[in-house]
Amino acid sequence: MPFSSAEISPASRRAYMLLALLLASVAGEVNAISFFALGTHTSHMTGNLANVGEYLAKGTWDLAVEAGLLVFAFLLGAVTATVLMDMSRRRPRGRHAMALLVEALTLAAVGLWATRHPGLKEPTIGWGMAYAMGIQNALVTRVSGAVVRTTHMTGVVTDIGIQLVKMMTWVRDGARGHGLGGLVWMIRRLPTAEQFARTRLHLGLATAFLIGCTVGPLLFFHFGAAAMAMPCAVLTLLVVLDLSPAGAYAPVTPGS
């Protein structure tokens, strides 16, 4: 069910927003760690799909297959999450727990294997990370009604730019004819204006992703592949919250 649905209570909407923000930080961590460990990004597929075409044009078939397998792993993760959520959509709670748990276990397996084989750039590590990110992206897409993505920020940053102009227009129109006092009053209303709730969410997503992209490499530089324990811990926390009575965010509907 979408974050913005009027059928969702304010408490449920906050729970969904917390889910999205924490998952954005997870994606930032995984994406940054995969870049420093493997030299490639695994949370978004634009660059990898472009690489497939570029390698095919150059005739480097082995590299094209390698990039293509990352895209396939991401796709397989999206399929997995969709199947798991369809299987659990009628549960009163824990509807996201299985997908989150599979993501956590995948990242834990990747981290454990990489810890035992430090410095080895095994392609299956990237496939595992891409698979986990595919799970996460499909999960958040379904939960938010395709409003939110957490594994890539292109659409989020675009929406922030659009909404910033709308916000400035809203302040200008509301303050017109009321002088400086009216301008100050409208600016003070911005943080709580309902029409800009999505803007606040997207700003939060971008910030959470950036924090993850910063924390992930810092942990990786100090602890190596064991840094994967951090996103796994966040995902485990989300599983526990989703299975708790408070995790029953909203009434279950066939399309949720």
Rank of each mutant, 00 (worst) to 15 (best):
T82R: 08
L100G: 11
F196N: 07
T150K: 03
Q136N: 06
L203H: 00
D173R: 10
G126C: 11
L190I: 12
T154C: 07
M186F: 13
T154S: 09
A99G: 11
H202A: 00
A99F: 03
V156S: 11
G177A: 03
A138T: 06
V165Q: 08
L180Y: 13
R172W: 07
M168F: 09
P191T: 09
H117V: 04
L180D: 10
R142E: 07
R93A: 09
A81V: 01
A175S: 14
H152R: 03
P123H: 13
T154Q: 08
G204R: 01
H202C: 00
W127I: 03
E194Y: 09
A109N: 15
R90D: 15
P191W: 14
L105A: 12
G181C: 10
G161H: 03
K166E: 15
R116K: 14
I187A: 11
L164T: 11
L120K: 15
V157T: 05
G119E: 01
A132C: 14
L105W: 03
T150A: 06
P118H: 06
G119A: 02
P92T: 15
G134K: 12
R200D: 03
Q195H: 07
R189D: 10
A97E: 03
R198P: 10
G177I: 14
T115I: 02
H152Q: 08
